[in-house]
């Protein structure tokens, strides 16, 4: 049994200070001036981290790496061309992967058993074998199909299957298998009531998927997709195996010319880091866009946050002057 709570004489209205005259509280709110909690742990860990970073930095500057060469090659023509090709093959493969993944995911959740099975095999095969192997197989497709022949157009496979095409198919189709699972999870995260409401309005299954389910699934789909994209950007270095001249391949070429192996590896790394950074920022804005409607107000962009901070600093100075 809980004892009845004494709500004071006013019957429901909160008891004022008069009801508790034992507590000496002055009328009106008193601004709180408390001593903040000290975070000693943070200070200690920061010192340790700084020390470790310093030691690693020291090791790097002492290493037999000619950093000037690393930086010189950053804007080398072949390296720039490679970086551009890396972006190109990554974006195009991702688009292909998104298209295939969406198709496979929709087939997977459809009621048609043929579609379901086809989708299942696609995902099973292309997720189950290494992408490196898939790339090499695409590149050597002439071993299986000597000729590319679609009736109105025919060409020997060796000339048809360019490094670019092999890279695109290898990465894109593999990516599609992963995207299919991500998109399926997104579709299934949408409340069934949404589909019902849409059907009850007379919307078809296709329209319901396109207008109601997929836009809401986006919120679940985008974060892992950003992850996949950044993963793909780095995985694309594997397509040097099919002679496609992207960043890693071109870095290898330059490194053979100049014998500056380590230097060029760092050049390429800097480029990969720069690219992943740019795309991570893009991902942030995309997530923000699809949060629309799910939150009462959108989170501030980093830019807005900086502005708010600056304004709040200025504002707090006003009363002091």
């Amino acid at each position: 049994m809980t004892p009845p709570i004494d709500k004071g004489p006013a019957g429901g209205t909160p008891a004022g200070p008069a009801g508790h005259d034992a507590i000496p509280v002055a009328a009106g709110p008193v601004p709180i001036k408390a001593i903040p909690v000290r975070h000693y742990g943070r200070w200690i860990s920061a010192v340790i981290v700084l020390a470790v970073v310093g030691l690693i930095g020291l090791a790097f500057s002492d290493a037999k790496v000619n950093w000037d060469v690393t930086f010189d090659y950053l804007d080398d023509d072949l390296i720039l061309k490679g970086a551009w090709n890396t972006v190109k093959i990554t974006v195009l493969s991702m688009l292909l992967g998104l298209a295939l993944g969406t198709l496979a995911a929709v087939m997977r959740v459809s009621r048609n058993p043929v579609m379901q099975t086809v989708s299942w095999f696609y995902i099973w095969f292309f997720r189950g074998t290494p992408v490196y192997v898939q790339l090499v197989i695409w590149y050597n497709l002439a071993l299986i199909f000597p000729n590319f022949n679609v009736g109105f157009y025919e060409e020997p496979m060796v000339t048809f299957m360019t490094p670019f095409l092999a890279a695109l198919l290898g990465l894109g189709i593999n990516q599609g298998a992963y995207m299919a699972e991500i998109i399926r999870a997104g579709i299934q995260s949408v409340d069934e009531g949404q589909t019902e409401a849409s059907h009850a309005l007379g919307m078809s299954r296709a329209k319901t998927m396109q207008r109601v389910v997929l836009p809401q699934a986006m919120r679940v789909i985008i974060p892992p997709t950003g992850n996949q994209f950044i993963d793909l950007l780095k995985t694309s270095s594997l397509v040097s195996a099919v002679q496609y001249s992207e960043l890693f391949f071109n870095q290898g070429v330059r490194s053979q010319d100049s014998l500056a192996t380590a230097e060029l590896l760092f050049t390429a790394s800097i480029w990969y880091l720069a690219l992943t950074t740019v795309f991570s920022i893009g991902q942030y804005y995309l997530e923000r866009h699809y949060a629309k409607g799910s939150q009462r107000s959108l989170p501030a962009t980093p830019f807005q946050r900086v502005r708010q901070l600056v304004f709040s600093l200025r504002r707090s100075e006003v009363p002091r002057s």
Partner: peptide, 13 residues
């Protein structure tokens, strides 16, 4: 046939 649900089921986006 219009239908109104207990949990509204509005399209949140």
């Amino acid at each position: 046939i219009g239908m109104v649900f207990q949990r509204f089921n509005l399209f949140p986006h």
